[in-house]
């Protein structure tokens, strides 16, 4: 039996914690949907026939379609190398892997300009070969891939470490080649972690703002991604368009989180069997 005073204190703590969450997070989140739908569905749907919106959505999806597979392949390779091998400088590689998380996205964009911009390291060569990276699609894809680079590796490394290499070695002893070992032994064991990593990569690649705004040039209908469309529309007092696009992006975040929670319970029930 807990004393009565104890119970009141519990209530107070709950109240303070949840009020904080409401002020900082829940109210602003609810506001996204309220602002988008407050003038009815018509205004909301109107945005989706806006040419600039459509082209921004198309660009954003294309960028994700490039960044996500690239980072998935990289993440699997890096996770396997880092979880299965010991080599000098491993701690440094692990730290530098986290750089895209810790660095300002603006600096990430700056890096791309300094490498591929007109006066950058490869600028002369690119110009001679008529390839535009900065203020064009390749730059946006590079920036999105950079900021979402570590997610898959970060999710898969702990799973691989916990798994140990016994099963892999057993498969090899029984005559499986590397490819068979990968698809039949490793992938089935890491699938939930891998899937979550892919989801996070996708959410970040689609939502990236800072790095993309440095390298894109923000030309409506050409190099404007959805997050850039949101900011531009807001600045031009097209509040309805800004919030309609925000709803699309917020739904993406919610789907990602719901999937995360489903994956987490799938992993837990997998552990029980």
């Amino acid at each position: 039996m807990k004393p009565r005073r104890w119970k009141i204190e519990l209530w107070v703590l709950n109240f303070i914690a949840l009020s904080y969450l409401a002020l900082v997070l829940v109210v602003p989140m609810a506001n996204v949907f309220y602002q988008a739908f407050k003038d009815g569905m018509e205004g909301f749907w109107l945005t989706f026939s806006n040419e600039d919106f459509r082209s921004a959505a198309k660009l954003t999806i294309t960028v994700a379609a490039i960044a996500v597979p690239l980072n998935t392949v990289f993440g699997l390779c890096a996770a396997w190398v880092l979880a299965r091998h010991r080599f000098p400088g491993k701690a440094i590689v692990l730290s530098i892997l986290d750089l895209p998380f810790s660095i300002s996205p603006v600096v990430a964009g700056l890096m791309i300009v300094l490498l591929y911009g007109r006066n950058g390291w490869f600028g002369g060569w690119l110009e001679a070969n008529n390839v535009r990276v900065v203020f064009a699609f390749p730059g946006i894809a590079l920036a999105s891939a950079f900021v979402s680079l570590p997610f898959v590796a970060r999710e898969v490394i702990p799973v691989l470490e916990e798994l140990g290499k016994d099963q892999e070695e057993a498969a090899r002893t029984l005559g499986a080649n590397s490819w068979q070992t990968f698809w039949r032994v490793i992938v089935p064991s890491i699938k939930w972690g891998l899937l979550y990593g892919v989801l996070l990569t996708n959410a970040r690649a689609i939502g990236e703002f800072g790095a993309v705004s440095v390298v894109s040039g923000n030309i409506a209908g050409d190099t404007q991604t959805l997050p850039l469309f949101v900011e531009t529309a807001y600045k031009e007092y097209q509040t309805q368009a800004a919030y309609s696009a925000s709803v699309a992006l917020a739904l993406l975040a919610i789907v990602t989180l719901v999937a995360k929670n489903i994956l987490a319970s799938a992993t837990k029930s997998g552990e029980k069997h």
Binding site: V32, A203, V230, A242, L252, A253
Partner: peptide
């Protein structure tokens, strides 16, 4: 973590 930062700034 999942919401694009532009949307956060806007709302």
């Amino acid at each position: 973590f999942a919401l694009p930062t532009a949307v956060a700034g806007l709302t």
